[in-house]
Simulated scan of single mutants.
Amino acid sequence: MKKTAISLAIAAAVPSSLAYAQDDAQAVQLYGKANVTFQSADEGDGANTDVKSNASRLGVKGELPLDNGLKGIYKMEYEVDVDGEEDVFKQRNIYAGLEGGFGQVIGGKFDTPLKVAQKKVDLFNDLEGDIKSLISRSDNRESNNLQYTTPAFAGVKVSAAYIGHQDEELFDADGEPIGTRSDGTSVSVAYDNEGFYLAYAYDQNVEANDWDVQRMVAQYNLGPVQVGALFEEQEKADGSTQNGWLTSAAYKINQWTIKAQYGQSDIVRNDGETYSLGLDYKLSSAAKLFGFYTDETAADDYDRSYFGIGTELKF
C-alpha cells in the first residue's frame, strides 16, 4: 500500500516537472558531437593502429530572459572520451554571464579570443593536423576568465578577456618548476560579413610571463570554395621571436568536400612543416564520413604521419 502511494505521488509530480521543462524548452539546448576515427599513426617507431575520440563532447547551453532587455546565458560543455582509454569526462568551455544591447559579459573557463579568432581556417581541427600540433601553442582555454564582447557593428566585433592566473606555478617538460605566471589578457577584433572574414588577435602573459602573441586570420567563402590563411608571431620574455603560418582550402561537390592544408612554424618545434589532405562525405546536416592524411616534420629528426577514416555525428 505504501509503495503504491509513493508511486502515485511520483507519477503526479513528473507531469508538472515535464511541463516546466517544456515551458523553457526554447531557452535550454542539450547538444553534442561524437567524432571517432580508426587510424594508423607512424611516430618513428613503426605504424600503430587504434580507435581515437577526437574532442567528442556533450553539453548544455541556454538563456534566461531577464528585465530591461537582458538575458542570462550559460554553457556547460565536457569532452567525452568515446574510445574509453582515458577519463570519460573532461571540462571544456563552461561559463555564465549576461547579454543585452550593451554586448556580452561571461566568466568561467573557455577559449580565449585569440583562439576563437582562428574561425574555421583550421580544416583539420581536433584531428592530428590541428594547428596546435605544430603551428601554434596559443590555442588556449583558460580558467578564471572574464570576457566582454561588443555587439556586432557593420560586421565588426571586439572581444577582450582578463585572465586571472593567481601566480600560477609553471613547470618545464621534466616537471621542474620554472617560475610563476601572472594575470594575462587576450583581445581580438574581427570583421565577418558576406563570406569574408578578417581578424587580428593579441595575447599578453597568457602562455607565460612576458610572452606576447599576435595572430592574423583571413578567410573567404565563395560558393563551393573556401580559402583561408593564418599567421602567428610569438615573442618570449627574452625578446626572441618565432613565427608560424598556415593556408587551407576546401571545395564542395554535392555531398563531397575536398580539403587541403599546409603550414610552417618554429613556434612548437624548430623548422616545423605540416600538410594534411582530407575528404568528407556528408550523410545529412548532422552526420558525415571522412578520411584524412597528415604528415609532420621538424628539426631533430621529428617525422610523423597519420592516416585515418572516421565518422562525425552531431545533435
Rank of each mutant, 00 (worst) to 15 (best):
S159P: 03
T149P: 01
G101P: 05
D130L: 02
E142V: 08
Y191P: 05
G164V: 04
F124V: 02
K90W: 03
M76S: 12
V187C: 07
L127W: 12
K120F: 13
N93L: 10
Q118D: 15
D126F: 00
L146D: 00
K75A: 12
Q147R: 10
E168V: 07
L123I: 15
V187I: 15
N144Q: 05
D192T: 13
D126Y: 00
Y191S: 03
D167V: 04
V116H: 07
G103S: 05
I73L: 12
V82A: 13
P113H: 03
Q166T: 05
I135K: 06
D130F: 01
M76F: 14
V187T: 15
V187M: 08
S188Q: 01
V88E: 06
T112P: 01
I131V: 15
R92H: 13
Y78R: 02
G97V: 09
G107E: 12
Y78V: 14
S133G: 15
N144H: 06
D83A: 14
S182F: 11
T149C: 02
A117Q: 00
E79G: 13
F89C: 04
V88T: 15
T149R: 10
I135F: 12
S186V: 07
G184S: 00
I178D: 00
G155S: 08
G108N: 02
L127D: 09
A190V: 07
Y95E: 02
E169Y: 09
S186K: 03
L134R: 01
R137I: 14
D83S: 09
Y74P: 00
I163M: 01
N193R: 05
F110D: 05
K157W: 05
K90E: 14
P151N: 05
Y74L: 02
L127S: 07
A173M: 12
F102Y: 06
N193P: 02
G84H: 07
I131L: 14
G155Y: 10
Q118K: 14
A190D: 02
D174P: 07
R141T: 14
F102Q: 00
T149E: 13
S186E: 11
N125T: 11
S138M: 01
V121T: 15
T150G: 09
K109W: 09
S182V: 09
G100A: 08
G107I: 14
L98C: 08
Y162M: 06
G103T: 11
Y191D: 02
A190S: 10
N93I: 14
